[in-house]
Design a protein around this nucleic acid. Structure first.
Length: 425
RNA sequence: GGAGAGAUGACCGAGAGGCCGAAGGUGCACGCUUGGAAAGCGUGUGUACCCCAACAGGGUACCGCGGGUUCGAACCCCGCUCUCUCCGCCA
Protein backbone atom coordinates (compact mmCIF):
# COMPACT_ATOMS: atom_id res chain seq x y z
CA UNK A 1 0.00 0.00 0.00
CA UNK A 2 0.96 3.60 -0.31
CA UNK A 3 1.72 5.81 2.65
CA UNK A 4 -1.32 7.80 3.80
CA UNK A 5 0.59 10.97 4.04
CA UNK A 6 2.07 10.47 0.61
CA UNK A 7 -1.43 10.12 -0.79
CA UNK A 8 -2.54 13.30 0.85
CA UNK A 9 0.51 15.31 -0.11
CA UNK A 10 0.58 14.03 -3.69
CA UNK A 11 -3.11 13.87 -4.26
CA UNK A 12 -2.97 15.08 -7.84
CA UNK A 13 -0.35 12.58 -8.93
CA UNK A 14 -2.05 9.75 -7.11
CA UNK A 15 -5.35 10.56 -8.78
CA UNK A 16 -3.73 10.64 -12.19
CA UNK A 17 -2.10 7.33 -11.51
CA UNK A 18 -5.37 5.74 -10.46
CA UNK A 19 -6.77 6.87 -13.81
CA UNK A 20 -3.83 5.42 -15.69
CA UNK A 21 -4.18 2.16 -13.86
CA UNK A 22 -7.86 1.88 -14.69
CA UNK A 23 -8.79 0.96 -11.15
CA UNK A 24 -11.61 2.02 -8.94
CA UNK A 25 -10.12 3.88 -6.02
CA UNK A 26 -10.72 7.16 -4.35
CA UNK A 27 -7.60 9.01 -3.26
CA UNK A 28 -9.61 12.05 -2.24
CA UNK A 29 -11.61 10.00 0.21
CA UNK A 30 -8.37 8.63 1.62
CA UNK A 31 -7.03 12.13 2.13
CA UNK A 32 -10.24 13.16 3.80
CA UNK A 33 -10.34 10.17 6.11
CA UNK A 34 -6.71 10.71 6.91
CA UNK A 35 -7.42 14.25 8.04
CA UNK A 36 -10.36 13.09 10.08
CA UNK A 37 -8.26 10.43 11.67
CA UNK A 38 -5.54 12.90 12.57
CA UNK A 39 -7.85 15.34 14.19
CA UNK A 40 -9.43 12.53 16.19
CA UNK A 41 -6.02 11.34 17.28
CA UNK A 42 -5.23 14.84 18.32
CA UNK A 43 -8.37 15.08 20.46
CA UNK A 44 -7.85 11.68 21.98
CA UNK A 45 -4.27 12.40 22.88
CA UNK A 46 -5.35 15.59 24.48
CA UNK A 47 -7.90 13.78 26.63
CA UNK A 48 -5.49 11.05 27.52
CA UNK A 49 -3.05 13.67 28.66
CA UNK A 50 -5.74 15.07 30.94
CA UNK A 51 -6.58 11.62 32.18
CA UNK A 52 -2.95 10.93 32.99
CA UNK A 53 -2.57 14.19 34.85
CA UNK A 54 -5.79 13.61 36.72
CA UNK A 55 -4.98 10.13 37.85
CA UNK A 56 -1.49 11.07 38.91
CA UNK A 57 -3.01 13.59 41.32
CA UNK A 58 -4.88 10.80 43.03
CA UNK A 59 -1.67 9.06 43.95
CA UNK A 60 -0.78 11.94 46.27
CA UNK A 61 -2.21 12.49 49.72
CA UNK A 62 -5.76 13.76 49.44
CA UNK A 63 -8.78 14.30 51.59
CA UNK A 64 -11.52 11.91 50.72
CA UNK A 65 -13.58 14.74 49.26
CA UNK A 66 -10.83 15.81 46.92
CA UNK A 67 -10.28 12.26 46.02
CA UNK A 68 -13.88 11.77 45.08
CA UNK A 69 -13.74 14.80 42.83
CA UNK A 70 -10.77 13.46 40.91
CA UNK A 71 -12.17 10.00 40.64
CA UNK A 72 -15.40 11.39 39.23
CA UNK A 73 -13.44 13.53 36.82
CA UNK A 74 -11.48 10.46 35.78
CA UNK A 75 -14.64 8.53 35.15
CA UNK A 76 -15.93 11.27 32.90
CA UNK A 77 -12.72 11.36 30.92
CA UNK A 78 -12.79 7.63 30.55
CA UNK A 79 -16.19 7.71 28.91
CA UNK A 80 -15.23 10.52 26.54
CA UNK A 81 -12.04 8.81 25.53
CA UNK A 82 -13.82 5.55 24.87
CA UNK A 83 -16.33 7.31 22.63
CA UNK A 84 -13.67 8.97 20.54
CA UNK A 85 -11.65 5.79 20.37
CA UNK A 86 -14.61 3.93 18.94
CA UNK A 87 -15.03 6.58 16.34
CA UNK A 88 -11.34 6.52 15.55
CA UNK A 89 -11.26 2.80 15.06
CA UNK A 90 -14.15 3.04 12.62
CA UNK A 91 -12.42 5.77 10.67
CA UNK A 92 -9.15 3.90 10.66
CA UNK A 93 -10.79 0.77 9.34
CA UNK A 94 -12.42 2.70 6.56
CA UNK A 95 -9.23 4.55 5.81
CA UNK A 96 -7.31 1.32 5.59
CA UNK A 97 -9.83 -0.32 3.27
CA UNK A 98 -9.87 2.70 0.99
CA UNK A 99 -6.10 3.07 0.99
CA UNK A 100 -5.70 -0.58 0.07
CA UNK A 101 -7.56 0.03 -3.16
CA UNK A 102 -4.98 2.52 -4.32
CA UNK A 103 -2.38 0.93 -6.57
CA UNK A 104 1.31 1.59 -6.52
CA UNK A 105 2.61 4.55 -8.48
CA UNK A 106 3.78 3.74 -11.99
CA UNK A 107 7.20 3.96 -13.57
CA UNK A 108 7.29 7.05 -15.80
CA UNK A 109 8.33 4.89 -18.76
CA UNK A 110 5.65 2.26 -18.32
CA UNK A 111 3.30 2.41 -21.29
CA UNK A 112 -0.04 3.94 -20.44
CA UNK A 113 -2.96 1.87 -21.54
CA UNK A 114 -5.84 -0.38 -20.83
CA UNK A 115 -5.19 -3.93 -21.93
CA UNK A 116 -2.78 -6.36 -23.51
CA UNK A 117 -2.81 -4.53 -26.82
CA UNK A 118 -1.23 -1.53 -25.10
CA UNK A 119 1.74 -3.44 -23.81
CA UNK A 120 4.97 -2.36 -25.42
CA UNK A 121 7.12 -4.95 -27.07
CA UNK A 122 10.69 -4.08 -26.22
CA UNK A 123 12.63 -7.00 -27.62
CA UNK A 124 12.40 -10.19 -29.60
CA UNK A 125 14.80 -13.07 -29.37
CA UNK A 126 15.19 -16.21 -31.42
CA UNK A 127 13.28 -17.19 -34.47
CA UNK A 128 9.80 -18.55 -34.62
CA UNK A 129 9.99 -22.13 -35.89
CA UNK A 130 8.48 -23.01 -39.22
CA UNK A 131 7.25 -26.54 -39.65
CA UNK A 132 6.89 -28.50 -42.85
CA UNK A 133 3.97 -30.26 -41.24
CA UNK A 134 0.99 -29.08 -39.27
CA UNK A 135 2.22 -28.54 -35.72
CA UNK A 136 0.25 -30.07 -32.91
CA UNK A 137 -0.61 -28.28 -29.71
CA UNK A 138 0.84 -29.41 -26.41
CA UNK A 139 -2.35 -31.12 -25.33
CA UNK A 140 -2.18 -33.49 -28.23
CA UNK A 141 1.56 -33.90 -27.90
CA UNK A 142 1.21 -34.65 -24.20
CA UNK A 143 -1.24 -37.35 -25.05
CA UNK A 144 0.67 -39.08 -27.83
CA UNK A 145 3.90 -38.93 -25.85
CA UNK A 146 2.01 -40.21 -22.81
CA UNK A 147 3.50 -37.57 -20.54
CA UNK A 148 0.47 -35.45 -19.60
CA UNK A 149 -2.90 -36.86 -18.62
CA UNK A 150 -5.74 -34.40 -18.24
CA UNK A 151 -8.64 -36.82 -18.41
CA UNK A 152 -7.74 -38.83 -15.37
CA UNK A 153 -6.89 -35.66 -13.44
CA UNK A 154 -10.31 -34.27 -14.24
CA UNK A 155 -11.89 -37.40 -12.85
CA UNK A 156 -9.78 -37.40 -9.71
CA UNK A 157 -9.25 -33.71 -8.98
CA UNK A 158 -11.41 -31.72 -11.35
CA UNK A 159 -10.90 -29.49 -14.32
CA UNK A 160 -7.59 -27.80 -14.94
CA UNK A 161 -5.58 -30.43 -13.15
CA UNK A 162 -3.16 -32.82 -14.79
CA UNK A 163 -0.94 -35.75 -14.13
CA UNK A 164 2.58 -35.54 -15.45
CA UNK A 165 3.68 -39.03 -16.42
CA UNK A 166 6.82 -40.80 -17.47
CA UNK A 167 9.25 -38.39 -19.16
CA UNK A 168 6.91 -35.57 -18.20
CA UNK A 169 7.95 -36.09 -14.62
CA UNK A 170 11.63 -35.81 -15.44
CA UNK A 171 10.96 -32.86 -17.67
CA UNK A 172 9.49 -30.94 -14.73
CA UNK A 173 12.35 -31.92 -12.45
CA UNK A 174 14.93 -31.05 -15.11
CA UNK A 175 13.45 -27.60 -15.61
CA UNK A 176 13.45 -27.02 -11.88
CA UNK A 177 17.05 -28.10 -11.52
CA UNK A 178 18.15 -26.09 -14.50
CA UNK A 179 16.57 -22.98 -13.02
CA UNK A 180 17.96 -23.62 -9.56
CA UNK A 181 21.47 -24.21 -10.87
CA UNK A 182 21.28 -20.99 -12.84
CA UNK A 183 20.18 -19.05 -9.81
CA UNK A 184 22.71 -20.64 -7.53
CA UNK A 185 25.38 -19.47 -9.96
CA UNK A 186 23.92 -15.99 -9.76
CA UNK A 187 24.35 -16.01 -6.01
CA UNK A 188 20.74 -16.51 -5.02
CA UNK A 189 19.89 -18.19 -1.75
CA UNK A 190 17.93 -21.27 -2.76
CA UNK A 191 14.85 -22.31 -0.85
CA UNK A 192 11.93 -24.63 -1.08
CA UNK A 193 9.17 -22.65 0.53
CA UNK A 194 5.98 -23.68 2.30
CA UNK A 195 3.00 -24.02 -0.02
CA UNK A 196 0.78 -22.48 2.61
CA UNK A 197 1.00 -18.97 4.00
CA UNK A 198 -0.89 -16.86 6.50
CA UNK A 199 -3.52 -14.52 5.14
CA UNK A 200 -1.73 -11.50 6.49
CA UNK A 201 1.40 -12.33 4.53
CA UNK A 202 -0.54 -13.00 1.35
CA UNK A 203 -2.39 -9.74 1.64
CA UNK A 204 0.82 -7.91 2.47
CA UNK A 205 2.14 -9.06 -0.88
CA UNK A 206 -1.04 -7.82 -2.47
CA UNK A 207 -3.12 -10.95 -2.79
CA UNK A 208 -6.59 -10.95 -1.42
CA UNK A 209 -6.86 -14.28 0.39
CA UNK A 210 -10.61 -14.19 0.81
CA UNK A 211 -13.51 -13.14 -1.28
CA UNK A 212 -15.12 -14.31 -4.46
CA UNK A 213 -12.80 -12.49 -6.84
CA UNK A 214 -9.77 -13.90 -5.11
CA UNK A 215 -7.58 -16.10 -7.23
CA UNK A 216 -6.19 -18.01 -4.31
CA UNK A 217 -7.52 -20.86 -2.24
CA UNK A 218 -8.32 -20.07 1.33
CA UNK A 219 -8.14 -22.95 3.80
CA UNK A 220 -11.27 -23.47 5.76
CA UNK A 221 -11.16 -22.95 9.52
CA UNK A 222 -7.73 -21.40 9.37
CA UNK A 223 -6.40 -18.01 8.50
CA UNK A 224 -4.10 -19.43 5.89
CA UNK A 225 -4.16 -20.00 2.16
CA UNK A 226 -2.46 -22.06 -0.50
CA UNK A 227 0.17 -19.89 -2.10
CA UNK A 228 -0.44 -18.67 -5.61
CA UNK A 229 3.28 -18.13 -5.96
CA UNK A 230 6.41 -18.32 -3.83
CA UNK A 231 6.50 -14.54 -4.10
CA UNK A 232 4.26 -14.72 -1.06
CA UNK A 233 6.50 -16.90 1.05
CA UNK A 234 9.68 -15.20 -0.10
CA UNK A 235 8.24 -11.76 0.49
CA UNK A 236 7.11 -12.81 3.94
CA UNK A 237 10.57 -14.09 4.79
CA UNK A 238 11.74 -10.77 6.21
CA UNK A 239 8.36 -9.47 7.34
CA UNK A 240 8.62 -7.23 10.40
CA UNK A 241 12.33 -6.88 10.31
CA UNK A 242 15.21 -4.67 9.45
CA UNK A 243 17.67 -5.70 6.80
CA UNK A 244 21.13 -4.29 7.16
CA UNK A 245 22.12 -2.11 4.20
CA UNK A 246 25.30 -4.11 3.75
CA UNK A 247 23.24 -7.26 3.21
CA UNK A 248 21.40 -5.73 0.25
CA UNK A 249 20.48 -6.81 -2.28
CA UNK A 250 19.11 -9.99 -0.73
CA UNK A 251 18.57 -12.42 -3.58
CA UNK A 252 16.38 -15.42 -2.91
CA UNK A 253 14.95 -18.18 -5.03
CA UNK A 254 11.99 -20.26 -3.97
CA UNK A 255 10.66 -23.49 -5.37
CA UNK A 256 7.03 -24.07 -4.61
CA UNK A 257 3.77 -25.29 -5.93
CA UNK A 258 1.39 -22.58 -6.99
CA UNK A 259 -2.34 -22.88 -6.58
CA UNK A 260 -4.80 -20.66 -8.38
CA UNK A 261 -8.54 -20.75 -8.59
CA UNK A 262 -8.70 -19.22 -12.05
CA UNK A 263 -12.43 -18.94 -11.72
CA UNK A 264 -13.96 -17.66 -14.91
CA UNK A 265 -10.63 -17.70 -16.66
CA UNK A 266 -11.76 -20.21 -19.25
CA UNK A 267 -11.05 -18.96 -22.72
CA UNK A 268 -9.43 -19.88 -25.94
CA UNK A 269 -5.94 -19.52 -24.54
CA UNK A 270 -6.69 -21.36 -21.35
CA UNK A 271 -6.58 -24.87 -22.57
CA UNK A 272 -4.26 -27.59 -21.45
CA UNK A 273 -1.33 -26.72 -19.26
CA UNK A 274 -1.47 -23.02 -20.00
CA UNK A 275 -3.88 -22.16 -17.20
CA UNK A 276 -4.12 -24.72 -14.44
CA UNK A 277 -5.03 -24.84 -10.77
CA UNK A 278 -1.68 -26.20 -9.69
CA UNK A 279 1.80 -25.90 -11.09
CA UNK A 280 5.39 -25.82 -9.99
CA UNK A 281 7.45 -22.69 -10.16
CA UNK A 282 10.87 -21.42 -9.27
CA UNK A 283 10.52 -17.80 -8.27
CA UNK A 284 13.17 -15.15 -7.80
CA UNK A 285 12.84 -12.50 -5.15
CA UNK A 286 15.02 -9.51 -4.40
CA UNK A 287 15.03 -7.18 -1.43
CA UNK A 288 16.75 -4.11 -2.73
CA UNK A 289 17.95 -0.71 -1.66
CA UNK A 290 15.43 1.84 -3.01
CA UNK A 291 18.04 3.44 -5.23
CA UNK A 292 18.95 0.10 -6.76
CA UNK A 293 15.55 -1.31 -7.58
CA UNK A 294 15.37 -0.21 -11.21
CA UNK A 295 18.70 -1.84 -11.79
CA UNK A 296 17.62 -4.99 -9.96
CA UNK A 297 14.52 -5.11 -12.11
CA UNK A 298 16.66 -5.19 -15.24
CA UNK A 299 18.81 -7.81 -13.59
CA UNK A 300 15.84 -10.10 -12.93
CA UNK A 301 14.77 -9.72 -16.52
CA UNK A 302 18.27 -10.55 -17.72
CA UNK A 303 18.23 -13.80 -15.76
CA UNK A 304 14.89 -14.74 -17.21
CA UNK A 305 16.28 -14.11 -20.66
CA UNK A 306 19.30 -16.20 -19.92
CA UNK A 307 17.11 -19.08 -18.85
CA UNK A 308 14.92 -18.95 -21.94
CA UNK A 309 17.85 -18.42 -24.25
CA UNK A 310 19.41 -21.48 -22.69
CA UNK A 311 16.28 -23.42 -23.51
CA UNK A 312 16.40 -22.08 -27.05
CA UNK A 313 12.84 -20.87 -26.93
CA UNK A 314 11.93 -17.86 -29.05
CA UNK A 315 10.44 -15.10 -26.97
CA UNK A 316 9.62 -11.47 -26.80
CA UNK A 317 9.73 -9.05 -23.90
CA UNK A 318 6.80 -6.88 -23.12
CA UNK A 319 6.73 -3.76 -20.95
CA UNK A 320 3.35 -4.11 -19.31
CA UNK A 321 0.96 -1.20 -19.65
CA UNK A 322 -0.44 0.60 -16.63
CA UNK A 323 -3.87 -0.99 -16.93
CA UNK A 324 -2.38 -4.45 -16.58
CA UNK A 325 0.13 -3.88 -13.82
CA UNK A 326 -2.00 -5.04 -10.91
CA UNK A 327 -1.89 -3.28 -7.56
CA UNK A 328 1.64 -3.72 -6.22
CA UNK A 329 3.80 -3.37 -9.34
CA UNK A 330 5.52 -0.14 -10.26
CA UNK A 331 6.71 -1.67 -13.47
CA UNK A 332 6.46 -5.12 -14.96
CA UNK A 333 8.20 -6.98 -17.74
CA UNK A 334 6.73 -10.16 -19.11
CA UNK A 335 8.49 -12.68 -21.24
CA UNK A 336 6.20 -14.27 -23.74
CA UNK A 337 7.43 -17.41 -25.44
CA UNK A 338 6.31 -18.46 -28.85
CA UNK A 339 3.70 -21.19 -28.64
CA UNK A 340 3.01 -22.76 -32.04
CA UNK A 341 -0.08 -24.50 -30.79
CA UNK A 342 -1.73 -21.30 -29.72
CA UNK A 343 -4.61 -20.33 -31.95
CA UNK A 344 -4.52 -21.13 -35.65
CA UNK A 345 -1.02 -19.99 -36.41
CA UNK A 346 0.69 -19.89 -33.06
CA UNK A 347 1.09 -16.97 -30.73
CA UNK A 348 2.97 -15.47 -27.83
CA UNK A 349 2.15 -16.80 -24.38
CA UNK A 350 3.34 -15.37 -21.07
CA UNK A 351 5.95 -17.53 -19.40
CA UNK A 352 7.54 -15.17 -16.91
CA UNK A 353 6.85 -11.91 -15.24
CA UNK A 354 9.25 -9.62 -13.43
CA UNK A 355 7.92 -6.85 -11.23
CA UNK A 356 9.42 -4.01 -9.32
CA UNK A 357 6.99 -3.40 -6.48
CA UNK A 358 9.11 -0.68 -4.89
CA UNK A 359 8.05 -0.16 -1.26
CA UNK A 360 4.39 -1.03 -1.84
CA UNK A 361 4.65 -4.50 -0.33
CA UNK A 362 7.37 -3.64 2.16
CA UNK A 363 5.18 -1.05 3.83
CA UNK A 364 2.55 -3.55 4.84
CA UNK A 365 4.96 -6.34 5.54
CA UNK A 366 7.12 -3.89 7.46
CA UNK A 367 10.49 -4.66 5.92
CA UNK A 368 12.84 -1.83 6.63
CA UNK A 369 16.33 -0.66 6.26
CA UNK A 370 18.25 1.75 8.43
CA UNK A 371 20.89 3.85 6.80
CA UNK A 372 22.73 6.71 8.43
CA UNK A 373 20.09 6.77 11.13
CA UNK A 374 17.31 7.09 8.59
CA UNK A 375 14.70 4.43 8.30
CA UNK A 376 13.05 3.50 5.07
CA UNK A 377 11.23 0.64 3.48
CA UNK A 378 13.20 -1.67 1.24
CA UNK A 379 12.14 -2.24 -2.31
CA UNK A 380 10.85 -5.67 -3.20
CA UNK A 381 11.04 -7.29 -6.61
CA UNK A 382 9.99 -10.63 -7.95
CA UNK A 383 10.41 -12.54 -11.15
CA UNK A 384 9.69 -15.95 -12.55
CA UNK A 385 12.67 -18.17 -13.18
CA UNK A 386 10.58 -21.09 -14.44
CA UNK A 387 6.87 -21.63 -14.35
CA UNK A 388 7.13 -25.28 -15.19
CA UNK A 389 3.76 -25.95 -16.79
CA UNK A 390 4.07 -23.08 -19.21
CA UNK A 391 7.66 -23.89 -20.01
CA UNK A 392 6.51 -27.38 -20.89
CA UNK A 393 3.90 -25.97 -23.24
CA UNK A 394 6.58 -23.98 -25.06
CA UNK A 395 9.07 -26.84 -25.18
CA UNK A 396 6.62 -29.40 -26.49
CA UNK A 397 5.19 -27.13 -29.12
CA UNK A 398 8.43 -25.57 -30.36
CA UNK A 399 10.55 -28.67 -30.43
CA UNK A 400 8.09 -31.13 -31.85
CA UNK A 401 9.13 -33.19 -34.84
CA UNK A 402 7.09 -34.33 -37.79
CA UNK A 403 6.60 -37.76 -36.27
CA UNK A 404 5.23 -36.31 -33.03
CA UNK A 405 8.38 -36.82 -30.99
CA UNK A 406 9.89 -33.89 -29.13
CA UNK A 407 13.53 -32.90 -28.79
CA UNK A 408 14.62 -31.74 -25.37
CA UNK A 409 16.78 -28.60 -25.01
CA UNK A 410 20.36 -29.65 -24.53
CA UNK A 411 20.71 -27.68 -21.28
CA UNK A 412 18.17 -30.06 -19.77
CA UNK A 413 19.54 -33.38 -20.87
CA UNK A 414 22.02 -33.69 -18.07
CA UNK A 415 19.11 -33.51 -15.65
CA UNK A 416 16.50 -35.37 -17.66
CA UNK A 417 18.67 -38.22 -18.83
CA UNK A 418 17.08 -38.23 -22.28
CA UNK A 419 17.40 -36.09 -25.40
CA UNK A 420 14.01 -36.59 -26.82
CA UNK A 421 10.63 -37.97 -25.97
CA UNK A 422 9.25 -40.47 -28.36
CA UNK A 423 5.76 -40.98 -29.51
CA UNK A 424 3.94 -43.74 -27.59
CA UNK A 425 0.59 -43.82 -29.29
C1' G B 1 -3.78 -34.00 20.12
C1' G B 2 -2.93 -34.02 26.07
C1' A B 3 -0.10 -31.83 30.52
C1' G B 4 3.09 -28.11 32.41
C1' A B 5 6.41 -23.60 32.06
C1' G B 6 7.19 -19.09 29.83
C1' A B 7 6.83 -14.49 26.39
C1' U B 8 9.78 -7.26 29.06
C1' G B 9 14.08 -2.70 24.84
C1' A B 10 19.66 -5.12 19.83
C1' C B 11 20.69 -9.08 23.71
C1' C B 12 20.59 -10.86 29.00
C1' G B 13 17.59 -9.60 32.99
C1' A B 14 14.72 -6.87 37.22
C1' G B 15 9.71 -5.58 37.98
C1' A B 16 4.78 -8.28 41.29
C1' G B 17 -1.68 -1.32 40.49
C1' G B 18 0.38 4.94 40.77
C1' C B 19 7.42 7.18 41.92
C1' C B 20 8.11 2.39 35.08
C1' G B 21 9.38 3.97 28.75
C1' A B 22 10.67 0.67 32.19
C1' A B 23 16.53 -0.80 37.35
C1' G B 24 21.11 -3.41 36.36
C1' G B 25 24.25 -5.62 32.91
C1' U B 26 26.00 -6.70 27.86
C1' G B 27 26.43 -4.78 23.19
C1' C B 28 26.71 -0.42 20.16
C1' A B 29 28.10 5.05 19.25
C1' C B 30 30.87 9.24 20.66
C1' G B 31 34.42 11.49 23.98
C1' C B 32 38.43 11.25 27.69
C1' U B 33 42.72 8.35 28.87
C1' U B 34 47.10 5.69 25.93
C1' G B 35 52.93 5.59 21.76
C1' G B 36 48.97 2.08 20.09
C1' A B 37 45.47 -1.36 22.01
C1' A B 38 42.91 -3.55 26.19
C1' A B 39 41.08 -2.04 30.69
C1' G B 40 39.03 2.29 32.99
C1' C B 41 36.00 6.78 33.13
C1' G B 42 32.03 9.94 31.02
C1' U B 43 27.87 10.70 27.77
C1' G B 44 24.38 8.71 24.66
C1' U B 45 21.68 4.59 22.69
C1' G B 46 13.76 1.60 21.00
C1' U B 47 9.50 1.88 17.70
C1' A B 48 5.12 4.11 15.68
C1' C B 49 2.01 8.08 15.08
C1' C B 50 0.38 13.34 15.79
C1' C B 51 1.70 18.81 16.22
C1' C B 52 5.94 21.53 14.05
C1' A B 53 9.84 24.81 8.80
C1' A B 54 12.80 21.42 11.75
C1' C B 55 16.34 13.74 12.34
C1' A B 56 15.19 21.43 17.50
C1' G B 57 11.04 20.91 20.70
C1' G B 58 6.27 19.01 22.48
C1' G B 59 2.51 15.10 22.90
C1' U B 60 0.28 10.09 22.76
C1' A B 61 0.76 4.96 22.45
C1' C B 62 3.58 0.51 22.74
C1' C B 63 6.58 -4.56 28.24
C1' G B 64 3.76 -11.48 22.68
C1' C B 65 -1.56 -10.18 20.44
C1' G B 66 -6.73 -8.82 21.56
C1' G B 67 -10.42 -7.69 25.15
C1' G B 68 -11.91 -6.59 30.43
C1' U B 69 -11.56 -4.56 35.60
C1' U B 70 -9.76 0.41 37.61
C1' C B 71 -9.60 7.39 38.52
C1' G B 72 -4.87 4.76 37.02
C1' A B 73 -2.24 -1.72 34.47
C1' A B 74 4.14 -4.40 32.13
C1' C B 75 1.93 -5.74 36.82
C1' C B 76 -5.11 -8.17 38.23
C1' C B 77 -9.01 -11.08 35.03
C1' C B 78 -10.51 -13.49 30.21
C1' G B 79 -9.45 -15.18 25.11
C1' C B 80 -5.71 -16.08 21.41
C1' U B 81 -0.83 -16.85 19.36
C1' C B 82 4.03 -18.39 19.77
C1' U B 83 8.30 -20.77 22.29
C1' C B 84 10.28 -24.58 25.57
C1' U B 85 9.75 -29.41 28.34
C1' C B 86 7.12 -34.12 28.97
C1' C B 87 3.42 -37.71 26.86
C1' G B 88 0.75 -39.55 22.55
C1' C B 89 0.67 -40.03 17.09
C1' C B 90 3.43 -40.20 12.81
C1' A B 91 6.38 -39.48 6.94
Amino acid sequence: MLDYRFIKENLKEVKENVEKRRVKANPELVAELYDKRNSLIHDIEDLRKKRNENSSKISGKLSSDERTVYVEKGKELKVKIAELEDELSKIEKELYIEALKIPNMSHPDAPVGEGEEDNREVKKWGSVPSFDFKPKDHVELGKILDIVDFDTATKVSGQKFYYLKNEGVYLELALVQYALDTLRDEGFVLTITPDIAKDEIASGIGFNPRGKESNIYHLEETSTCLVGTAEITLGGYYANSFISPSALPVKMAGLSHCFRKEAGAAGKFSKGLYRVHQFTKVEMFIYSHPLQSDKMHEYLLSIEEKIFQGLGLPYRIVDTCTGELGGPAYRKYDIEAWMPGRGETGGWGEVTSASNCTDYQARRLNVKLKEDGKKMFVHMLNGTAIAVSRAIVAILENFQQGDGSVKIPSVLTKYSGFKEIERKV
